[in-house]
């Protein structure tokens, strides 16, 4: 029992910040702590079942908690971003350097919820493809294909948006 508690607390301290950020991107601020607590209660109850890829497993639990509790209430923030229209600073790291942050945000918000989630898992949550696939419950190659398509669509929306703005 003591060993279990120690393992759980080590797990908690390793991942609670990343997990809180993952949740913060997906639910209103006042719900973050509720989801975080419920996720770790699940982890405590299923401590023996947690696989080696514990971070991806925890994110998967949090995703299920959010879907279970918040989808029906339409309270999910759905990974939308708010960027002021006057945010005209160039996105430095983007190869073409043609898009402003506002254009990128506009293109991002036109993606479907599924497309946003596929990209957000690697871009915001800093997961590997294998971890992101585990969060979604699909194979790595299936995830890779989804990511390829989502990136291509975002590029297409961005090119259209940036082209129209010029």
């Amino acid at each position: 029992m003591k060993a279990g508690r120690e393992r759980f607390e080590a797990l908690y301290w390793r991942h609670h910040r990343d997990l809180a950020a993952f949740i913060r991107r997906r639910v209103p601020l006042d719900a973050v702590e509720d989801v975080l607590a419920e996720t770790f209660v699940v982890a405590w109850r299923r401590l023996r079942d947690i696989p080696g890829e514990e971070r991806a497993w925890l994110f998967g639990v949090a995703r299920n908690v959010i879907r279970n509790a918040y989808r029906a209430e339409a309270r999910q923030r759905a990974l939308h971003v708010r960027v002021a229209e006057e945010a005209t600073d160039r996105v430095d790291s983007f190869d073409d350097a043609i898009a402003t942050r506002a254009e990128l945000a506009h293109a991002w918000n036109q993606l479907s919820e599924t497309e946003q989630e596929v990209i957000a898992l690697v871009a915001w949550d800093d997961l590997s493809n294998a971890e992101a696939a585990q969060v979604l419950g699909v194979t790595t190659s299936a995830y890779a294909v989804r990511l390829f398509r989502a990136r291509r669509r975002l590029l297409h929306l961005l090119e259209r948006s940036a082209g129209g703005a010029r």
Binding site: A20, E33, L36, R77, L104, W108, A123, R151
Partner: peptide, 23 residues
């Protein structure tokens, strides 16, 4: 590059930390 650019839109960037002990 595209993912790097998207990283800059992260809505959780700069959010306050939670109280780890209380949680």
């Amino acid at each position: 590059p595209l993912l790097d650019a998207v990283r800059g839109l992260d809505p959780a960037a700069g959010a306050p930390e939670i109280d780890g002990e209380a949680m």
